[in-house]
Amino acid sequence: MVQLIGHLTGAFDLIDLMKQNILAIVDVVLGLLSTLGIITNPTKPKSGGYNL
């Protein structure tokens, strides 16, 4: 969405290398957050975050 807005307004355009670097950074950050348990997907409302 940010890329589309930047392109439409003429503020900036991301090149392919920049897109790959940004995607890699986002993947690492989301991986760390999920490993640390900061972002979770509990399937049971009262399970306390553990899917047993």
Rank of each mutant, 00 (worst) to 15 (best):
M1V: 07
L4N: 12
L4H: 11
L4P: 01
L4Y: 11
L4R: 15
I5W: 07
I5N: 07
I5V: 15
G6M: 04
H7T: 14
H7C: 03
H7P: 00
L8E: 12
T9G: 03
G10M: 00
G10L: 00
F12A: 05
F12I: 01
F12T: 05
F12C: 02
D13W: 09
L14A: 04
L14C: 01
I15D: 15
I15A: 11
I15F: 08
D16N: 09
D16F: 03
D16G: 02
D16W: 06
M18P: 02
M18C: 09
M18D: 13
M18V: 10
K19W: 02
K19R: 14
Q20H: 08
Q20C: 05
Q20E: 11
Q20S: 10
N21W: 02
N21Y: 03
I22P: 01
I22S: 01
I22A: 04
L23F: 11
L23K: 15
L23T: 15
A24L: 05
A24G: 06
A24P: 01
A24T: 07
A24I: 02
A24M: 05
I25P: 00
V26H: 10
V26Q: 13
V26D: 09
V26L: 13
D27S: 14
V28P: 00
V29I: 15
L30Q: 03
L30H: 02
G31K: 07
G31C: 02
G31Q: 03
L32P: 00
L33P: 01
S34D: 06
S34R: 15
T35F: 10
T35N: 12
T35Q: 13
T35R: 15
T35L: 15
T35Y: 10
L36G: 07
L36M: 12
L36T: 04
I38Q: 00
I38W: 02
I39R: 06
I39Q: 00
I39S: 03
I39T: 08
I39H: 02
T40F: 00
N41P: 05
P42Y: 03
T43W: 04
T43D: 02
K44V: 11
K44T: 10
K44H: 14
K44M: 12
P45M: 08
G48D: 06
G48M: 04
Y50D: 10
Y50H: 13
L52N: 11
